[in-house]
Design a protein around this nucleic acid. Structure first.
Lengths: 151, 151
DNA sequence: AAACACATATCGTGATACGATATATTTATG
DNA sequence: CATAAATATATCGTATCACGATATGTGTTT
């Protein structure tokens, strides 16, 4: 019942998923490479991006950054430690709640990030179509598959 | 020239990039979580997916897997070591070129992967729209920004 | 047959994310 | 208002994993 002959449907889904992940990896690899070339660890780049991309006026705390990066609090503390040590950002205790640490980008961080953002924009102009196409494929096969397998 | 007042355009790009990466992280986190729940390291899952998703008949070698996963050869060898040890796949020397190792999924690997693929399909039915939207946003801002900054 | 190229394998190292735990501050409760 | 509970960040030891450098085995070229 699960294996009619050679499960061509399931294979199609696996192929589209594999292709999607491959495209994702390629994008990630590009992103990590240019971050490293700019002198940033990829995670530092992501941290700066989430600081810069926060809603206007919203204070960026360790907990906020952790949630946006999908990290545990302590891992984020360590990432912030390294980034602060390298002058990419500042950490100041929130006056209204001294438990909190507010993270703000330094000029150095800002200028590194700006350049990376611009490069990402260029690259995504090329890459987005393939990513979107891969996603659409997965989506359509997902629908077929979910219907067929009854979950 | 680079900082008119508070560079609202650049901020918009940074926000869309941040949002895109956040959506990506969420998807990755989902994927990694269910892989671990199924008893697979996330990278083992990716390896199995690339084996299963290869063009029909195309032999999957270490080098092929490395390219698809964005890893160095030696890292891939280690990943394959672990996966083979756990019975997820088999490695056999290619008879026609004994330098090559051909990777094939075991039944155990196949059934774990099938289940994960189905779960990914379900999840992506929900998540793809937001990912695509984030990508489209980046793309449109990318165009604006690339035009404005002259690169 | 020797030299070279190619594919995989081995080994030592370093970076980083984590769990468990500790400290500081704020909020809730009697 | 004092003490307990909750919240936010920080510290420390550990494990994993990807890597560079190097080695081995196989194929190709001359």
């Amino acid at each position: 019942m699960t294996h009619p002959h050679r499960e061509p449907n399931s294979n199609l889904l696996l192929k589209t998923l594999a292709e999607f992940r491959y495209e994702l990896r390629r994008f990630m690899h590009f992103s990590e490479s240019i971050a490293l070339d700019a002198g940033l660890q990829p995670q530092q780049h992501q941290l700066l991006l989430q600081i810069a991309g926060a809603r206007d006026g919203a204070p960026v705390t360790i907990a906020y950054a952790a949630e946006r990066l999908g990290l545990k609090h302590n891992s984020t503390v360590e990432l912030v430690d390294r980034s602060e040590r390298e002058g990419l950002l500042t950490r100041t205790a929130d006056p209204s709640d001294k438990r909190r640490a507010i993270l703000e980008m330094s000029n150095k961080g800002r200028s590194l990030l700006d350049r990376l953002a611009s490069d990402h924009a260029d690259e995504l102009k090329d890459r987005a179509p393939r990513l979107i196409e891969a996603l659409e494929h997965v989506r359509s096969h997902a629908a077929i598959d979910a219907g067929a397998e009854a979950r």
